[in-house]
């Protein structure tokens, strides 16, 4: 065991940690933003909305995440030479960075999986509660905001906790498209020091600690909304 490299490389590791957290938070935020309407459309929407939502979830869940990431990063990369104006446009600083593609791919992936979870959640809210809300004259919007959505989220909070932990462990794929996340930094250390086990052990510990904190956070959230049946 040799840990002397830690003194040299800890700034890169901390920077990588920051990138990993940014990937996780951004993709869960944007993913959830998409997943709620996607789930609701499938559970209660008209057929012309339900069908594309279903198709989206099936497509995302039916293809490997790595393929999706490379599809966006290298796939779109092939198209850039066809539009030379792009390189001088204001969008280019974003389009040239792997981070942007990673956030897009991870968000869509999270939306695909959680869209399906939310569909089940919306369907799982007891009909009686919804009918009761209607009976006291709640508008459809208030019904969703006050009853249907909060009840649905509470039903699937434990599932969402697990899925979000899964999302964290999907983020290392970003290093394959030049993003220097926690995994990217670890690989750089491995390559520069020719040490294999110590950096990998440390990065595993990092992911475990983040997971532990996330699980604590979700437990706290679950206790915040007491559930009685």
């Amino acid at each position: 065991m040799d840990w002397s490299w830690l003194l040299v490389y800890y700034p890169q590791l901390l920077h990588g940690l920051w990138i990993t957290l940014a990937l996780l938070v951004l993709s869960v935020f944007f993913g959830m933003l998409m997943a709620v309407p996607i789930g609701f459309a499938q559970a209660a929407g008209p057929r012309w909305l339900a069908w594309p939502a279903k198709a989206f979830c099936t497509f995302i869940r039916g293809t490997p995440l790595l393929v999706q990431i490379w599809f966006f990063y290298y796939g779109l990369g092939i198209l850039f030479p066809l539009i030379p104006e792009l390189r001088t446009s204001f969008l280019w600083p974003v389009l040239r960075e792997g981070f942007f593609y990673a956030v897009v791919a991870f968000s869509l992936s999270y939306a695909g999986y959680e869209g399906e979870v939310m569909r089940g959640a919306f369907l799982g809210v007891p009909k009686g509660e919804i009918e009761a809300a209607r009976a006291i004259g709640m508008s459809p919007f208030t019904l969703v905001r006050r009853i249907w959505f909060p009840r649905a989220v509470r039903l699937v909070l434990p599932t969402l906790a697990g899925e979000t932990v899964g999302q964290l462990k999907a983020t290392p794929l970003a290093f394959t498209i030049t993003v220097m996340d926690l995994m990217g930094a670890t690989n750089m250390i491995r390559q520069n020091t020719y040490r294999t086990y110590e950096p990998l052990m440390l990065v595993a510990l990092f992911y475990m600690i983040i997971t532990f904190i996330m699980v604590l956070g979700f437990n706290w959230l679950e206790r915040l909304v007491p559930q009685k049946r």
Partner: peptide
């Protein structure tokens, strides 16, 4: 920017990244 393979460097060179 570092890549796992030379092929990927060339891809991003062609893409202008």
């Amino acid at each position: 920017k570092t890549y796992q393979t030379q092929d990927e460097v060339n891809q991003d060179m062609a893409a202008g990244r």
